[in-house]
Design a protein around this nucleic acid. Sequence first.
DNA 1: ATTTCCCTCCCCAGAAATAGCGGGGCCCGT
DNA 2: ACGGGCCCCGCTATTTCTGGGGAGGGAAAT
Lengths: 237, 237
Amino acid sequence: MNGKLETLIARLQEASSRADLQDAVFLLRDHYDVDHVVYHSVNQSEEPYAALTYGEDWVGRYIEKDYARIDPVVQGCYQRFHPVNWKQLDWSGKSARSFLGEAISAGVGNQGLSVPIRGPNGQFAMFTVSAKAGDDSWQRFTSDHLSDLLLVSHFMNQKALEFGGPDDRTLGRQLSPREVDALSLLANGQSRGQASETLGISEHTLRVYIEAARLKLGAQNTTHAVALALSHGLIIL
Amino acid sequence: MNGKLETLIARLQEASSRADLQDAVFLLRDHYDVDHVVYHSVNQSEEPYAALTYGEDWVGRYIEKDYARIDPVVQGCYQRFHPVNWKQLDWSGKSARSFLGEAISAGVGNQGLSVPIRGPNGQFAMFTVSAKAGDDSWQRFTSDHLSDLLLVSHFMNQKALEFGGPDDRTLGRQLSPREVDALSLLANGQSRGQASETLGISEHTLRVYIEAARLKLGAQNTTHAVALALSHGLIIL
DNA sequence: ATTTCCCTCCCCAGAAATAGCGGGGCCCGT
DNA sequence: ACGGGCCCCGCTATTTCTGGGGAGGGAAAT
């Protein structure tokens, strides 16, 4: 069993295109004998991507109705670190109930386990297995395979990121220490006046730093510069 | 070996306090026969926390000098999803070099592998093992134990979150869609005028959203609000 | 059914940011 | 020893943002 997991992961790591990821979800479905396996990014700004075993009709409907906004599984994963058993979630709420009914009649399965995955720059994705099963047997399944699924979801996302856009890691690094200080203080809510006082320099000098940083980052204004610096990891909260 | 991993993880899952996590890093160090094992959160917004095997002197110096801001390992992890081998990082740069020298003389070890860990609300933590070793043997060690370390870092963080403060799941979530739109556009560099045009609303209305978001987030000003929203994962890019 | 939140719009005065100009000194690498 | 990057300071002008008001309609939840 563990040997099999390593084989699966090795296959994942050898994947060279998104088609291989699509193959992988079917392999995983067969291997774990579940009804469905889904990997999908939940990024409203970036281009969405998914590798899944659901039928096209359900996928189409999910996208069309923008169900990601009301799906309690998505909501729950977004707020948690540890994988989420669907049964733990809050299914009260009108829209949630009707969504659940529709999902089950679409053959999604009444049980599911979803793994939240977070990457750089606010990337968020989910890896889900679902099946028709009783509470007990599903509980057993999930605790037996929790570690497996964690690893699979990691490597799945690693590959998905690889096939995604190019890294723009080049941008960073070029800020001077003072520029980093300046942006950090602004990101922490200080005004230019306060920040200059904190650093013990004139407000004008601070402005020069901000301006320099803004130009280096190609930002339109100070807020943009702070946002870019944050999302590139040049400054930390 | 695998049995041992499961034992370790089981112990982690039974942990009932931060002291148990502190014990765990020493257990892990002995088990993997490395020089140091470190788990630490990299979030100044939240209260910082760490469980590690470093000596107090080095830890004190790291905090005092705010090395997290220049540590290339932190920067690298922040920008990547997959675990980072220290040797892959960019150690050019004056401050990085002097930091490296100081770290090695503090007994940190010349080789290291760091796992980035991301949780809800922009939580960011790192799990690191380090040792004195040659490039080849370290390469072998990391590829042998990559999966182990991924799992350990996951459960470590799960417990750390558990022992952390109360969930501030309340903070996020409470931004309305329009408020998210407004902050997103500002974070992308648009001025209020442009953003209001993009959304097809008056600039005044946009201001109301920004103001509402600012109050909800407890931010001092717009830039602060954008920074908070970004680092809490409420908006992207 | 009432409350509560969200969305939309308007005015105004003061504070802050942007965009220019100018100056000097330090350290580093070529 | 030179350019280039970083660090520090001064001034002015224009544009933009901030932080208070107030007001109405609609959707959703209790």
